[in-house]
Design a protein around this nucleic acid. Structure first.
Lengths: 257, 257
DNA sequence: CTCTATTGTGTACGGCTTACACAATGTAAA
DNA sequence: TTTACATTGTGTAAGCCGTACACAATAGAG
């Protein structure tokens, strides 16, 4: 059951957040999108020092962690009912902002709960790029997509978290087909292939790829072709919702790799 | 860097544990062993009410969670340098002993940190049955192996945690060969096969199994045979440490399933 | 000594994966 | 208008892997 975040000022949150949230525990979301044939991840830019980080948040005292992750996702993207996969919990004793003086706003007392050690639970989500309305949080001046190959140095261990999310995503490709959540409703086979190639970070054979994907029997080939591109117009496809669900239940026998 | 647990009495731990440990956070270990052709899991029996649970513990304020899990493992089994795989973090807001009155010792105040909500981080480990010296913790009257098929109703969501550990273990069979940690140094092919059959919960073909395992090229066939059993004496094998490590780095191409 | 359960070994089939070639089409340049 | 080029649509052959399966050898039990 999703809950409402208390409406706190930034100062209140820093100084009294522990009244509402569990101390020492945070959520970090790695939100993947796909656009212009590039895999993207949603990042926030911290007000105080301009450094980048993953969208994150805290867990309300009577809130399930899965709901907390969904709440964070919704408040940064406007999206709900998105599948969130918990992939790892990061618990180095050195995970504290206190160690990185640059991260502390000057007006904040050094003993704020916010500066303390945090164990963070990592989730990733796949979202349709065009449906996202990026929205910064109270701490941030910007919330925007970043090409997966151009991610800057992030705060704390957020680069590690991102890397592990990608590893987890790749492992999961054997269990569900990619695309339904990352591509628009109608898409072409080359687009889907490039998505796979980006996530797996390797080239795939065009003909074998098509054979395999169609062999899963979860796509519907449309009559129309994608107009406007240079060169021969490719056919459009869309997912067959019914067959997709059925395939999910029984599990994919053989993954793309 | 492993740390020492503060030596607290049970009463102190219940009432003042939050001075040493992070509040609301716990560790639970699913420790697998293999004996008499059966997969076993190590369980504890709670002093107050005789109910069973997974071996668990808390995270010291300046301790990595991985180290905390290793500390818990060592204090229940006497084993160190064991691979611990973090598989999931359980964070339902209903995870609190307060809800289960039966769990509270009568002398404990209802507002003890111990009765509060806990988010628990789950790890599993594979250990050699014969090397374990089971040792109860401060709260328990017993610490012993339980057949995986005969696990009773455990406290809180510990049955869920155990189930998910098994699922995680099965998924990981594609990435590393089973046996090095669960079997004695020398073992027979039928023993190894029965281990796989138990974990995967299905029968495997004897001849194909042998072909595949030997194909991994990580076993050394010994000259001796296992004496003493009824029927034809099977050959003994042991793991080739060097080749094993090499195979781990490059990853197994094809798993057993 | 015989019987039986178990171990040791090899082969054939089918399916999946991989490698690969040529015709068709739409845009851009000549 | 024609040509060139990049890209799409489609099918086939070879090889590897997984699976199914049979028979001889051996050790203990009776």
């Amino acid at each position: 059951m999703p809950r409402k975040t208390p409406q706190l000022s930034v100062k209140d949150l820093f100084e009294n957040g522990q009244q509402y949230y569990l101390p020492h525990i945070s959520i970090d979301n790695v939100i993947f999108g796909f656009h212009d044939n590039e895999l993207k991840v949603l990042l926030l830019q911290w007000n105080e020092n301009g450094r980048w980080c993953l969208p994150g948040g805290f867990v309300l005292k009577d809130e399930d962690i899965q709901d907390a992750a969904a709440r964070v996702l919704k408040s940064r993207t406007s999206l709900s009912d998105i599948f969130l996969s918990q992939f790892h919990t990061f618990g180095s004793s050195k995970r504290k902002r206190r160690r990185h003086g640059i991260d502390k706003p000057k007006w904040l007392k050094a003993d704020s709960w916010f500066m303390d050690r945090f164990i963070t639970i990592g989730y990733w989500a796949l979202v349709e790029f065009s449906k996202v309305i990026p929205k910064p949080d109270e701490f941030s001046m910007a919330c925007q997509w970043c090409d997966i190959d151009k991610v800057p140095k992030l705060i704390l261990d957020h680069n590690d978290i991102l890397d592990q999310a990608l590893v987890s995503l790749r492992r999961n490709l054997n269990e569900f087909p990619l695309g339904k959540d990352l591509l628009p409703t109608n898409f072409t086979m080359p687009e889907l292939q490039r998505l796979y190639e980006t996530v797996l970070n390797k080239k795939l054979d065009r003909r074998n790829f098509q054979k395999k994907i169609l062999g899963l029997d979860i796509l519907i080939k449309l009559q129309e072709r994608k107009q406007g591109g240079a060169h021969k117009a490719p056919f459009l496809y869309k997912f067959d919702r019914t067959k997709y669900k059925k395939a999910m239940k029984s599990g994919l026998k053989s993954g793309l790799q």
